[in-house]
Every structure is written in C-alpha cells, then in structure tokens.
C-alpha cells in the first residue's frame, strides 16, 4: 500500500482543543507539513500567541515559546537575532496581531526581520468569547458589537496583508483562505513560499489566512465556510500582495 495522506509527525498526537470545524486545525497541519517537507523540524522555533492558538506549543512538534499577547514578533526577533540559523515562525490571531500587537508586527516587517508569520484572520476574538476584532466586518454581530459593527463608531476592518505589503522590509506577503480543499492546497503553497523566503534570508514573510469561527459566528462548520466565502473573501481579496523572492 502506498500512503496518499497521513498526519505529519511535526504535529504531536495531542488532540486539538479547537471547536469542531475550526480552521486553526487545518492551518496547524499545513504549517507542520511544510516544516516536514522542508526538513527543518530540528531548527525551527515556534512562537505561539495569546488567543485560541495559545496552546499551539502542545501541537507543533518543535521547540516552542509562548509569547505575551501580541508580542510574538518581538520575542521571535530575540531568537532570530541571537541565532540566525533558527527558522522562526509566529502563529497569531487577529486580536493578537492586528490589535494589541500591531506595533510589533509592523516593526518586525519594517526591520525586514527574517521570520515567518502565520496570521489567522477569522474576524473575531475566539478565545475570549466572540468579541469584535479589528478585522470584524462592517455589520457583523459580535458580543461587543451586538448591533453589528458600525463603521462610524469603530471604523472599517483593517486589511493587514495589504498594509504590511507597503512596508519595505516585507519580502513575501500573501492572503489565502481555508474554506475549500483547493484553497487549502493554495494556502499550503503560500506557507511554504513564506518559509522558503525566510530560509533564503530575503526578509519578513507573512501569510494571512482567512479562517472561520463557527462557534462565535453562531453557525455550523459547513455554514461558516460558506459565510467566509461570501463575506470575507470579497472584503479581503486573496492573492500574493508582495513577493520580492523572484526578483533577481
């Protein structure tokens, strides 16, 4: 028998604590598969955030560090600068990266920090119970925007990939989604490109992954993937936002 698909050993055997149908599990697996395929498990250090992925260190089968809320890019910088041979990635949600950690991510990109960031945008604070995120869509109901996000009150959602693509130090920025098998394949390719960008020493790389939150969106997993496609992708267009890796 030939194996077509099995769980990568770069994911531990721990059962993920995520809710049924949560995209975090998909993205964890993609990152782990990329680490396995690139043969970099023994030199990779994972920085996990505060948010739903706070227990990421239980799942990524690599040396792992738990960072304070939003500070993963700064902490990851500490590892990368003391040991440039490490492959360092941060895994952050939209509250962690786009809100409290906005300064840290902007300046990691600005320094051209040779780290890779996997940014999960599911338009909500998951861990704390469904509060509004900077990425929450206009009109979207959350526990702190119970009448729907009002742009006159708290602005329109922030497009991180586009914003970071304007920064000189960014080398590879792409937005992907995990709503369909085809998009999941593309997401994995983007994550691989981002890690390869780091390995080539080109600069800062980030993949923004549009993901779902069935529990806090109040939908079934299947409905949430459809909601993502209909509502998030039009506002957050998929694709490569910056890529200097192919320049000579």
């Amino acid at each position: 028998m030939q194996t077509v698909f099995k769980k990568t050993p770069v994911l531990t055997d721990a059962i993920l604590h995520y809710c049924p149908g949560c995209g975090h599990g998909i993205v964890h697996r993609l990152v782990a598969e990329v680490i396995e395929e690139l043969g970099i498990q023994d030199r990779t250090v994972a920085y996990v955030p505060v948010g739903c992925a706070v227990f990421g260190y239980k799942y990524f089968n690599v040396d792992s560090v738990e960072a304070a809320h939003g500070r993963a890019p700064a902490a990851a910088t500490g590892t990368k600068r003391t040991d440039p041979n490490r492959v360092v990635f941060t895994y952050q949600g939209d509250g962690d990266l786009a809100s409290i950690g906005a300064a840290e991510i902007v300046h990691a990109a600005h320094r051209g920090e040779k780290i890779t960031t996997i940014f999960i945008n599911n338009a909500i604070y998951g861990m704390t119970g469904g509060q509004m995120a900077p990425t929450t869509l206009v009109g979207q109901k959350t526990t702190t925007s119970p009448y729907g996000r009002d742009e006159n009150h708290c602005g329109k959602p922030i497009r991180i990939a586009e914003m970071l693509a304007t920064i000189e130090g960014s080398a590879y920025i792409e937005r992907v989604a995990v709503n369909t098998p085809a998009n999941i394949v593309k997401a994995k390719k983007a994550i691989k490109n981002a890690f390869e960008c780091q390995l080539a020493g080109k600069g800062f790389s980030l993949v923004e992954v549009l993901s779902n939150c069935p529990t806090n969106w109040g939908m079934s997993p299947v409905e949430s993937m459809e909601w993502l496609e209909k509502n998030m992708i039009p506002y957050y267009p998929l694709g490569v936002k910056k890529d200097i890796t192919k320049e000579v």
């Binding site: 960072a67 902490a75 500490g78 590892t79 990368k80 300064a103 902007v106 600005h110």
Partner: peptide, 16 residues
C-alpha cells in the same frame, strides 16, 4: 520600537 518590544526581544533571546 518600544520598551514593550525590547523586553519581549529579551524574552525571546533568553528563551533561546
């Protein structure tokens, strides 16, 4: 970029 970032860089370097 800030004292907050600096101490967290220290955290990362110490962690390694």
């Amino acid at each position: 970029e800030s004292e907050v970032a600096a101490i967290n860089m220290v955290y990362g370097a110490a962690a390694s």
